[in-house]
Amino acid sequence: MRVVSADDIQKILTYRALIDALADAFKSDIVVPVRHHHTIPQPGADATLLLMPAWTLSLAAQPDAKPVSTFAGRAADDQRYIGCKIVTVFPDNAKLQRPSVHGQYLLLSGETGEPLAMIEGRTLTAWRTACASALAARYLAREDASHLVMVGAGALAPHLIRAHASVRPIKRVTLWNRTRARAISLGFGIAVAGIEVDIAETLEEAVREADIVSCATLSPEPLIKGAWLKKGTHLDLVGGFTPKMREADDQAVKRSRIFVDTRAGAAKEAGDIVVPMKKKIIDAKAIKGDLFDLTRGKVKGRTSAPQITLFKSVGSAIEDLAAAMLVWKGLTG
Results as ranks from 00 to 15, higher is better:
Pro158Asp: 01
Pro158Val: 04
His159Arg: 11
Leu160Pro: 00
Leu160Thr: 08
Ile161Leu: 12
Arg162Asp: 13
Arg162Phe: 05
Arg162Met: 12
Ala163Thr: 12
Ala163Ile: 13
Ala163Gln: 04
Ala165Trp: 04
Val167Pro: 00
Val167Thr: 07
Arg168Val: 03
Pro169Thr: 13
Pro169Asn: 13
Ile170Ala: 08
Ile170Phe: 08
Lys171Asp: 06
Arg172Met: 03
Val173Cys: 13
Val173Thr: 14
Thr174Gly: 01
Thr174Lys: 01
Leu175Asp: 06
Trp176Asn: 06
Asn177Ser: 14
Arg178Trp: 11
Arg178Glu: 04
Thr179Gly: 04
Arg180Asn: 04
Arg182Thr: 14
Ala183His: 01
Ala183Lys: 07
Ile184Tyr: 00
Ile184His: 03
Leu186Cys: 03
Leu186Thr: 02
Leu186Lys: 02
Leu186Met: 02
Leu186Gly: 02
Gly187Gln: 00
Gly187Pro: 07
Phe188Ile: 02
Phe188Leu: 12
Gly189Ser: 12
Gly189Ala: 12
Ile190Asn: 03
Ala191Gly: 01
Val192His: 10
Val192Trp: 08
Ala193Cys: 03
Ala193Trp: 09
Gly194Leu: 14
Ile195Glu: 02
Glu196Leu: 03
Val197Asp: 09
Asp198Met: 01
Asp198Leu: 00
Ile199Asp: 05
Ala200Asn: 12
Ala200Ile: 05
Glu201His: 09
Glu201Pro: 10
Thr202Asn: 06
Leu203Pro: 08
Leu203Arg: 01
Glu204Tyr: 14
Glu204Gly: 13
Ala206Lys: 13
Val207Asn: 09
Val207Asp: 04
Val207Cys: 13
Glu209Thr: 13
Glu209Ile: 03
Glu209Asn: 12
Ala210Pro: 15
Asp211Val: 07
Asp211Thr: 05
Ile212Leu: 14
Val213Gly: 12
Ser214Thr: 15
Ser214Lys: 14
Ala216Val: 14
Ala216Ser: 15
Ala216Gly: 07
Ala216Trp: 13
Ala216Ile: 10
Thr217Ile: 11
Thr217Cys: 11
Thr217Phe: 10
Thr217Asn: 07
Leu218Ile: 10
Ser219Trp: 05
Ser219Phe: 06
Ser219Thr: 06
Pro220Lys: 11
Pro220Thr: 14
Pro220Gln: 11
Pro220His: 11
Glu221Arg: 00
Pro222Gln: 00
Pro222Cys: 04
Pro222Lys: 00
Ile224Gly: 01
Lys225Asn: 07
Ala227Lys: 15
Trp228Tyr: 09
Trp228Cys: 11
Leu229Val: 10
Leu229Arg: 05
Leu229Gln: 10
Lys230Thr: 12
Lys230Arg: 15
Lys230Pro: 06
Gly232Gln: 12
Thr233Met: 03
His234Glu: 04
Leu235Thr: 02
Leu235Glu: 08
Leu237Lys: 07
Leu237Cys: 03
Leu237Asp: 03
Val238Lys: 01
Gly239Met: 02
Gly239Asp: 05
Gly240Gln: 00
Gly240Ala: 09
Phe241Arg: 04
Phe241Pro: 00
Phe241Gly: 09
Thr242Met: 06
Thr242Trp: 03
Thr242Gly: 10
Thr242Ala: 11
